[in-house]
């Protein structure tokens, strides 16, 4: 299934609030966040630990539900969606990348990337074609049969990125994607992301502590104490350019 870029915002959050209880105390993780991501955006979200960055990303990724507020993903309100519909939305329209890669250890590089297509029921030939192209795009041709434990950190993150993109989604959410990578590998991953952002209109929302990510982003947001405290648009001349892009 090919996902077409939408005319409107990819993500729109209105007055998003999230409270949760821990150790008998109520934590106000998000205190009314308004936010919008358009097709082709590259957003870096910064903020101190515990500021609500990951909670916010979980909301946008539909893996956690807000206490109040409205979240629209591709124009669809997620508030009343059943767990099954949310799973379908995540499967078809949202790509997720995690700090610790979160690959399925018993599957090879090829199979990890193929997995979302199997969930979608894509025919075998189409799967092979799409996985092969993406493996080439992230430069893992020689590693396609290896399982995650035989890959380096950078290779694993490229597999995770390919898995997030295989459904041809226009929204990829990444939580500290360079958190476990060295500088050179981080640059390579960010370069691939930038290339996909610019050439394929994929919107990236990246939660990070890594100041280098901001150099690749078109917008930089800061969350502090559960509130959006800054939303800067980067000038094209200020952005890092890579060979890949």
């Amino acid at each position: 299934m090919t996902i077409q870029a939408t005319a409107g915002p990819v993500v729109e959050a209105r007055d998003l609030v999230k409270h949760y209880k821990t150790g008998g105390e109520t934590v106000e993780a998000l205190r009314g966040v308004d936010f919008r991501v358009d097709s082709g955006d590259f957003v870096a979200i910064h903020g101190p630990s515990g500021s609500g960055k990951t909670t916010f990303l979980n909301m946008v990724g539909c893996i956690d539900k807000p206490t109040s507020g409205e979240l629209l993903v591709y124009g669809q309100s997620t508030a009343t969606m059943s767990e099954g519909k949310l799973a379908t939305l995540r499967r078809d329209r949202i790509g997720l990348v995690f700090q610790v890669f979160n690959l399925i250890p018993v599957l090879s590089t090829y199979e990890n990337i193929e997995y979302p297509l199997l969930l979608q029921g894509v025919p075998r030939r189409q799967r092979q074609e799409r996985v092969r192209k993406l493996i080439e795009a992230v430069g893992l041709e020689k590693e396609h049969r290896r399982r995650p434990d035989k890959l380096s950190g950078g290779q694993r993150q490229r597999v995770a990125l390919a898995r997030a993109l295989i459904t041809e989604t226009h929204l990829v959410l990444a939580d500290e994607p360079t958190g476990n990578l060295d500088t050179e590998t981080s640059k390579r991953i960010l370069g691939i992301m930038q290339s996909l952002n610019e050439n394929r209109d994929v919107a990236f929302v990246v939660v990070t502590h890594d100041p280098m990510v901001g150099g690749y982003a078109k917008r930089t947001l800061e969350i502090c104490d559960g509130r959006l405290s800054r939303d800067d648009v980067a000038m094209p001349a200020d952005r890092i350019r890579t060979e890949a892009s």
């Binding site: 990724g61 893996i63 767990e83 099954g84 799973a87 379908t88 995540r90 499967r91 078809d92 997720l96 995690f98 979160n102 690959l103 399925i104 250890p105 997995y115 979302p116 969930l119 898995r163 997030a164």
Partner: peptide, 16 residues
């Protein structure tokens, strides 16, 4: 558990 969380996050349904 984390692996279960991962496959759920990328769209695997509960029944699966």
């Amino acid at each position: 558990m984390r692996e279960v969380g991962t496959i759920r996050a990328i769209g695997t349904k509960r029944k699966h």
